[in-house]
Design a protein around this nucleic acid. Structure first.
Lengths: 337, 337
DNA sequence: AGTATTCATCGAAGCGTTTCGACTATGCGT
DNA sequence: ACGCATAGTCGAAACGCTTCGATGAATACT
């Protein structure tokens, strides 16, 4: 940089101002400076910049070490966040740690990152508490119980659930089942599990349908069990909303073992489920697909906005899933089984 | 840091030496220094450290923006790399860009990262050329055509292919088909596609079996088509090795439309395929599962080893996939169809 | 006893930026 | 013709650490 200054015949600080636009620089000098940078192949040093300006232009993605197993979903999320960050001139570092790790404090205090994007927020999340305590800038994907005064993006589960129920209702289904994630996830306050469970009942009531909910572990075997139990208890079910990708093969197997077929005997909608998974099964699944890439990008945007805004505004956003009709839904049977 | 030094009654530099172990420090002083750090809640500043030492302790994961669609595989990879890095005191930033992007040069010259881990290396990869040109430290996942003098980890495709062929051979299959990724991927020099294709023929020849290979786009429809074509041309096939996760549902459908069943009429092995996918289908798939997490961690380790070693050694490693027998393989039929 | 080594520590010079206060023209209103 | 903003620039002081050369004390080797 000192060479650039010399070559352009200006002071070191002038080069800096030309680079950041922090103070006015005459067009002519700017030209000379840029020319000198070009000729010398000068590239500003990110670390030095960060040290001097106290803004590293690095943000962290706080990523819980996979407990429920890792979904495709998350990957797309991570890459879209990385790209969004890069587009704004930021770098994204990955911090993959358990939600209750004490290491987070260490990492934050290293002063490396300007802000944090937190994934998979639980209703009571120690990470969030720590961030608030340290008054560290952050945004969340998902929300905790009380999210006022915090910045977040999340799936609009209310709207998503409503769309699923509407879809089945319009196909003539009156008896609708809902297979959720596990009861443990519900108890732990995992957002989607809690919100969809609640909204399902409201939507069913509002549409004057019959509904029945069930929890289910995230596994093929649990899907099989849960479905059979559900059908034993409620033989008239004809529509099924499932928010549990991993249980689905078990459900499909259970259906076919009864000699039934999808969608002729049972219609099935997979909630918050990506196209990639939907196309692995036969028939392909009608889904409500989460706007993953948008969520990732938006989360990053909100965080950066928060970092760069002078006023401490805390933006929030909700995005609905998109209904994609494939082979697993159809008209309800006229006749009772 | 200056406060810590004061409080411990030593010079600034002594604190630094105590922190890094760069020079010997008496046990007693060390204690005093650590006590002072504790009391003052001192945490070293990562950026300043990086600036002064010229080693940021940040590495980048160079991640091509998904072309073939993103697999589960990659996610596990990314998280395991992040964790491995953290265990060694490094941060991992994500650089998700197309292989031919000119932005890479910019990023490298920012001086932010000490080294780069390159994913999805193609036989002729402009990213690698750039890295060599700039003499920038890097390791690869996968290899290019000529990988001598470079550090990499990769799946041992030779061994993996051999395992698949052996498995089918031991079950009595004599006529074995191989469904690869697309011909375009092969032409583009995508490593796995090229290596397995070659090794398949060698392994078949060595075991005195009959083998036939076929390319196939990464889609359900292509899987369906390719399988039917293959069976039309070679009706006696009884074992099938598939390295194309997305084609598999189409293959399964085609099998069942013939009134055949897996594994009674056709045995199927999915190559380089994760448990998660294998359990989505009926029957579940016998797979050769890639040691993703190990690859990610090892890649990071090799890179860091390269960064920290005084001698410029360039370590390499190959890891085989692990055979996991599930429901899609069985004894070959005795009678010809 | 004298010299060579090693150990433990200090002070100061960077690392490559940003940013603050100060300085000089220039154009403005009066 | 006079003070006053303002655009444009400079020099120097941070930012928080590492690292180099030097120094003194203690130990080891002839």
């Amino acid at each position: 940089m000192v060479d650039v200054a010399k070559r352009a015949g200006v002071a070191l600080s002038t080069v800096s101002y030309a680079l950041n636009g922090t103070r006015p620089i005459s067009e002519e000098t700017r030209q000379r400076i840029y020319a000198a940078m070009e000729e010398l192949g000068y590239k500003p040093h990110a670390l030095a910049r960060g040290l001097a300006s106290k803004r590293s232009k690095i943000i962290a993605l706080l990523f819980p070490t996979p407990e429920r197993g890792l979904g495709l979903t998350e990957l797309e999320f991570v890459t879209s966040a990385a790209e969004a960050a890069r587009n704004k001139g930021y770098h994204l570092v990955l911090w993959s740690l358990p939600t209750d790790s004490s290491e987070l404090r260490q990492l934050l205090q290293q002063g490396l990152v300007d802000g944090v994007l937190v994934m998979e927020v639980h209703l009571n999340d120690p990470r969030i508490e720590l961030l608030r305590e340290l008054e560290f800038p952050f945004s969340m994907i998902g929300r905790c119980a009380e999210s006022t005064g915090m910045s977040y993006v999340d799936i609009d589960f209310d709207r998503t659930t409503q769309l699923a129920v509407n879809c089945l209702a319009e196909l003539g289904h009156r008896q609708i089942g809902f297979i959720n994630h596990s009861h443990e996830a519900f108890e732990a306050g995992y957002g989607p599990t809690v919100r969809v469970a609640q909204r399902f009942n409201e939507a069913i009531a509002a549409a004057q349908l019959h509904g029945v909910s069930s929890f289910c572990h995230d596994s093929v075997a649990a899907g099989y069990e849960t479905f059979n139990q559900l059908l034993t208890d409620h033989p008239a079910l004809s529509g099924l909303i499932v928010m549990n990708e991993r249980a689905i093969p078990g459900i499909i197997q259970a259906v076919s073992e009864r000699g039934w077929s999808i969608p002729d005997d049972i219609s099935l909608i997979s909630l918050v489920s990506s196209a990639r998974v939907a196309e692995m099964t036969l028939p392909t699944l009608t889904t409500l697909e989460p706007p993953i890439a948008e969520l990732g990008a938006l989360g990053v945007d909100l965080l950066i906005q928060q970092l760069e805004a002078q006023d401490r505004e805390l933006p929030q956003a909700l995005l609905p899933c998109q209904l994609v009709v494939r082979g697993s839904t159809g008209q309800a049977r006229r006749t009772e089984r």
